[in-house]
Design a protein around this nucleic acid. Sequence first.
DNA 1: GCGTAGTCGTTGCTCCGACAAGTATTATGG
DNA 2: CCATAATACTTGTCGGAGCAACGACTACGC
Lengths: 158, 158
Amino acid sequence: MHENDAPDRGAWLNETEQSAWRAYLDSTRMLFAALDRQLAAESDLTLTDYDILVRLDEAPGGRLRMRELADLTLSTRSGVTRAVTRAEQAGWVRRVECEEDRRGMNAELTEAGRVKLAASAPGHVRAVREMLIDQLTPEQLSQLTEIGRRMQGKLDIG
Amino acid sequence: MHENDAPDRGAWLNETEQSAWRAYLDSTRMLFAALDRQLAAESDLTLTDYDILVRLDEAPGGRLRMRELADLTLSTRSGVTRAVTRAEQAGWVRRVECEEDRRGMNAELTEAGRVKLAASAPGHVRAVREMLIDQLTPEQLSQLTEIGRRMQGKLDIG
DNA sequence: GCGTAGTCGTTGCTCCGACAAGTATTATGG
DNA sequence: CCATAATACTTGTCGGAGCAACGACTACGC
């Protein structure tokens, strides 16, 4: 009758926790796979590639340091290096050396990049709506926001 | 004033939708990455590998057809072929030919596989608790279940 | 029965992304 | 100042996973 016999505290998940976790895990995997397929089929893009275009588009001057881009897209620096290289070869992005730090590099969205994003966004947004947003009540959508924020709060720190 | 000028129906997400989607996307990426790191560090496993051990453990006789395993883990057949090959080389799984269908193959959990799962589960479960379950109210946990189910309902069909 | 169509699992190919090491540059501490 | 540490990006290497193609087998239609 001590600390570790509270019903939920064992080494396994109870049934409620288990179904929540599985439902979340499976649905998320399905959603991400479906979004990747949609972007690949309609725009020949990866979700990561798309995310990079979006983040650059939102940044002042369409320009971000590689490091910032890695932080925003939650990927590693090497991942960003390669993704930006791909985008550069496709003409959507150009590399611009950093003035104030000679190690630094900026990725800058080109006009072709903005065009590409404008062409890709509607299909992607439609998919996100159909598969996620339209399936949920407004209350669930706001719960999802809060759930995500709480997880981020835990995961940002460690 | 017709069907597509409802405020939420445009080609872009409104602010509420946008923050929900980003919070969900980012937190999920963080969580999956953290879980993968935890399993890699403490058990030298992938989340997929772990999932395979779990599904086999739950199956009668610790045995499943490759196809079933692919469906349950939401991966492709080729993915399962390779994951099972890895698990087989590690000694956690053995391949058993299927009696009633000579094309078929079963993956069967070995004793070593059960031991491996028993050794890996507590750390993984602890991580899931810390990062996800403990961050949420019971109400949010049940909302998460319902959200996942709704998405699955949409995505299972098409 | 027999041919055709579909299914099962595997393999070849290729892409994506993580980690670790390397180079160049900037920051720090004495 | 100068040596050391820390940071920014890149690259080498590797592992995981998707798609398409394949051989083996089964199921179906007639």
